[in-house]
């Protein structure tokens, strides 16, 4: 809506105004670039400093013991840094959390995006997202004080075990899985849904045969993000996993206590300074580096998967 006055103004700017505009644009862009690079550089710095402190461990102790031995006695004489059981513990707990979070989260997302009426959805979604707002120490306290005795009453010898932590971590990962996979389901266009109905498919068939396959890469990305959430969680596992550095027998026995990478780093950090033995200090950074690289890989895969979906939905 151009008023007569503005249309009468000259379109050509004076040289000075032109320079000022260019300068301010330049400054603005520079500032934004600087702010953005703070985050990016921060990540690089973290990677650099963790790697710098992790490398001495491998120089001191080599790779074999760390990745293949299950003897974790960092404060003993002679020290042993076999972290295999801790890797297995982290993997087991993450697997358990994924088994809890993936089906529940995807089902909830389907329900939210395609089944529930709009009004209900508006009420339910914030409640699910509120799960993400509960501090992890509160989850841990619940796991230790309420959930563990309850599992024992159901017959587990000890309540602080892989199952306990898996379920709690699964619940903690739910909001991530639900909201990312719901976004993916929403991104499946109306045309696909209507096309499916037009071909005579029922709602269930449309959901499971058309929408879910179309959104599958987004759903996979959601699950991967949830897995990263579970893998990186520290407080809950430190409080409720039992922290026993052992591989359960058999390996999928979720009723035995396990120890994870994150809990080991958190629990051993206090004593493990330069002052009290350097290998013990650096081994924690080696664990941190492994965690970081794994999460990095997960992140890359989920980015890649999402980009595939975007291309697919554009129509190929």
């Amino acid at each position: 809506m151009g008023t007569p006055r503005s249309s009468r103004q000259s379109l050509v700017m004076s040289a000075r105004a032109n320079l000022a505009a260019a300068l301010s644009r330049w400054l603005g862009n520079g500032l934004l670039l600087a702010i953005t690079s703070v985050a990016a550089i921060g990540v690089l710095f973290i990677l650099f400093f963790i790697a710098r402190d992790a490398v001495p461990f491998f120089q001191l102790r080599g790779f074999k013991e760390f990745f293949t031995s299950t003897h974790w006695y960092p404060s003993q004489e002679p020290v042993e840094f076999g972290a295999l059981s801790i890797f297995v513990g982290s993997g087991l707990v993450t697997l358990g959390a994924a088994l809890v979070a993936a089906p529940l989260g995807v089902a909830a997302a389907l329900c939210l995006s395609d089944v529930l009426p709009f009004g209900v959805r508006q009420a339910v979604k914030p409640v699910i997202e509120m799960l993400a707002a509960i501090p992890s120490v509160a989850y841990g306290f619940f796991a230790l004080v309420v959930f563990a005795p309850w599992l024992q009453r159901l017959g587990a010898i000890t309540g602080t075990n892989a199952l306990n932590v898996s379920i709690i971590l699964g619940i903690m990962a739910l909001p991530t899985v639900v909201s990312v996979s719901e976004d993916a389901l929403q991104a499946v266009g109306r045309e696909l849904r209507e096309g499916s109905y037009a071909l005579g498919a029922t709602r269930a068939e449309t959901l499971l045969r058309t929408i879910v396959p179309a959104a599958s890469s987004g759903i996979l990305a959601a699950v991967l993000l949830g897995i990263m959430r579970a893998l990186g969680e520290t407080m809950v596992v430190w409080m409720a996993s039992g922290n026993a550095a052992q591989i359960p027998d058999p390996w999928f026995n979720f009723l035995e206590p396990v120890r994870t990478l994150t809990a080991t780093i958190a629990g051993d950090m206090g004593e493990a300074d330069h002052v009290t033995g350097s290998a013990r200090y650096h081994v924690l950074f080696a664990m941190g580096l492994c965690l970081l690289l794994f999460c990095f890989a997960c992140n890359l895969i989920s980015e890649w998967v999402v980009s595939i979906q975007r291309r697919k939905l554009k129509g190929e």
Binding site: H71, A148, P149, M239, N243, P257
Partner: peptide, 21 residues
């Protein structure tokens, strides 16, 4: 290696309170 580790005296007591074995 099967021993469970807890972070405080209070947590150790809590584990015993709630675990018969």
């Amino acid at each position: 290696s099967g021993a469970e580790y807890v972070g405080s005296n209070g947590a150790a007591r809590q584990r015993v309170q709630s675990t018969p074995a």
